[in-house]
Computed example of a mutant assay.
Amino acid sequence: MKKNNAVKDDSTCFAAVLTGDITRSQTYSDDELRSILAALKQHLTTYAKRYGGHFDIYRGDAFQLAVEQPQYSMHIALGLRLALKAHTANVDVRISVAVGEAHFRPKEVKTGTGEAFVLSGRGLDAIKPYHLAFFSSDNKLESNLQLLTRFADAHISALTQTQSETLLAYLEASDKNHENIAAILNKNRSNVSRILNASNYKLIAEYLAYMTQAIMTRQEGTE
């Protein structure tokens, strides 16, 4: 894993910033919202450790995560949405993802500066009626990836709680054999395969691979 040089020496780096909030958070009871926020924090912590990042949760239902491995930004965004949808029925989050120059310090992500922070924050303000959006200062990159992301967004939005749980397990597993996914979820293998097929898991995996490669190519052009 790459070291977080932006945190270490206060330099500016090419990074991804994910700004999001829980939809309809005011409709949940205090206990429900606490449980949802605990799940959100757990997954943000996992992704921050895995991809060299830092995050803040603020205003009760909003969050911001900055990572120095931007090529995995959409893995994180989809992972967060699937995790929350799997956690509680009818729960979802809006996430605005932006890649570009960023400057941030540990535990002070919400005070970060740079184009990635600006684009991500503005993107969340204008994200409705979507739940997922991608932005970049590179107009060609944004144009190429934004429409694909809207299709992915519509697909994820339509998944059930069980489909979200199963697809997340598949995407997160190092061994993606359906037998292994079934063991992780303590479910029947044929049932897992049926759910994954209904979730169009191969298409989502292809989308993530395409996004990873496109962002990596853009990042290499800045170095």
Rank of each mutant, 00 (worst) to 15 (best):
Q26I: 13
Y58D: 10
K128H: 15
Y210M: 14
S73D: 00
G114N: 03
R81N: 00
L167C: 06
G20V: 08
I215L: 01
D125G: 12
S11E: 12
E32R: 08
A158V: 07
S25W: 06
N4V: 05
T217M: 12
Q146F: 13
E223M: 15
G112H: 02
L78G: 03
K187Q: 09
A205C: 12
S199Y: 05
A38C: 14
N177W: 05
A173D: 04
Q26F: 15
R94V: 06
K3F: 11
S11H: 11
I22D: 07
R94I: 04
K41Y: 05
L82R: 00
I215H: 04
A38K: 13
T88G: 07
F14D: 04
A83Q: 14
A98T: 03
L84D: 03
M74V: 04
K85E: 06
Y210S: 12
L208E: 00
M211K: 03
A152H: 03
Y207V: 09
T162G: 09
I184L: 09
V99A: 08
T113P: 02
G60M: 10
L148G: 13
S157R: 14
A38T: 15
I215D: 01
L37D: 08
L196V: 01
S193M: 08
L171M: 07
S137G: 14
A16Q: 06
G20K: 02
N188C: 09
A38R: 13
D31G: 10
R150M: 12
K110G: 07
K41M: 06
S11K: 12
G112E: 00
N139R: 14
R81P: 05
L141I: 05
L196K: 00
D138I: 06
I57E: 09
L65E: 01
D153I: 00
S137L: 06
V7Q: 11
L18P: 02
N177M: 08
N188I: 02
A89C: 12
D175P: 00
R194I: 03
H43M: 13
T46Q: 14
Q42H: 13
P106V: 08
I22K: 01
E68P: 02
G121W: 05
Q161E: 13
A6T: 10
H75I: 13
I57T: 10
N191Q: 13
N177A: 15
E115W: 05
H155N: 08
A6Q: 07
D138R: 06
H155Q: 15
I215G: 01
H103S: 15
A86C: 09
K85F: 00
E32T: 09
I181K: 00
Q71C: 13
I22G: 02
D30E: 13
S199C: 03
V97I: 08
D92P: 07
E68H: 14
S143R: 14
D61M: 14
R94H: 10
G114H: 02
N177S: 11
E115M: 13
A6W: 07
K140Q: 10
A183C: 09
L168S: 05
K187H: 03
V7W: 10
M211Q: 05
A209L: 08
L141N: 03
H87T: 04
N4E: 02
R105V: 04
